[in-house]
Nucleic acid binder design. Structure first.
Lengths: 120, 120
DNA sequence: TGAACATATGAACATATACTCATATATAGA
DNA sequence: TCTATATATGAGTATATGTTCATATGTTCA
């Protein structure tokens, strides 16, 4: 279990060849893991987390969210754009007002999983 | 349902006072949501995601991980530090070699929740 | 049609962050 | 003790990103 092969970029030797090749087999596509990271990156901002949490309580328009979080309308709008691109929220227009709501039933479950870790 | 009160920072008016105050009541502590965002931020990097996924398959030493991901030992070590600070991984020392393993049984479940969204 | 308002958006800026590079620390073996 | 090896870490750098500011778009109502 100690073959010691030098590799390209990593400036060290493989100590456990068997383990590495086994794990390499089991790893999902690079792309899928990249997408997964991109999704969590969206959750990784407190403004967006608060927006998502708020929307999990009730649909709201942009002004309401801005008031709730005491932030500028522009800042909220920019973040809503990101959340929409990630298909985490959707919106419906009613005259001048745009109402946002969650577009994924699993958002709350993802929150729960995170909280379980934090609260341990 | 249209009280229109001007607020501090948000450059707009509250359209639905009732909804905003109701949601404000239900929102968790600012600090808790901040911690939650910080946790997801750790998941929001493809290098760390790949490390966590790899460790969910098998414990590994730093060199093995560097070889697996074809990255420098230093880069991996820096990321492992972050993962350890967040209590997502732990390590044990065996001579010169440091073995890392998952420190949270829920990591895989958090992945699953993310994948459900991506695969929809 | 024109004023008021809700929202969206591009550019600029300040900050955060992931990696590299150089080097420190620690352990094993000769 | 000296060398080799495995890992950790501080500084520097390039890039990513969140917010602000100014302004555009689109809708309602007088």
């Amino acid at each position: 279990m100690s073959e010691k092969i030098n590799l390209d970029r990593c400036d060290c030797t493989v100590i456990h060849e068997g383990v590495v090749s086994m794990v390499k087999e089991k790893m999902p596509d690079e792309e899928k893991l990249y997408d997964l990271a991109e999704l969590f990156k969206v959750f990784g901002d407190s403004t967006r987390i608060r927006i998502l949490w708020a929307l999990s309580e009730s649909d709201m328009c942009v002004c309401d969210i801005a008031a709730l979080l005491n932030m500028s309308q522009s800042a909220i709008s920019h973040q809503l754009r990101i959340l929409k691109q990630t298909r985490l929220v959707k919106n419906r227009k009613d005259g001048k007002v745009v109402y946002y709501s969650l577009d994924d039933a699993h958002v709350k479950q993802i929150f729960e999983m995170g909280l379980i870790h934090i609260c341990e």
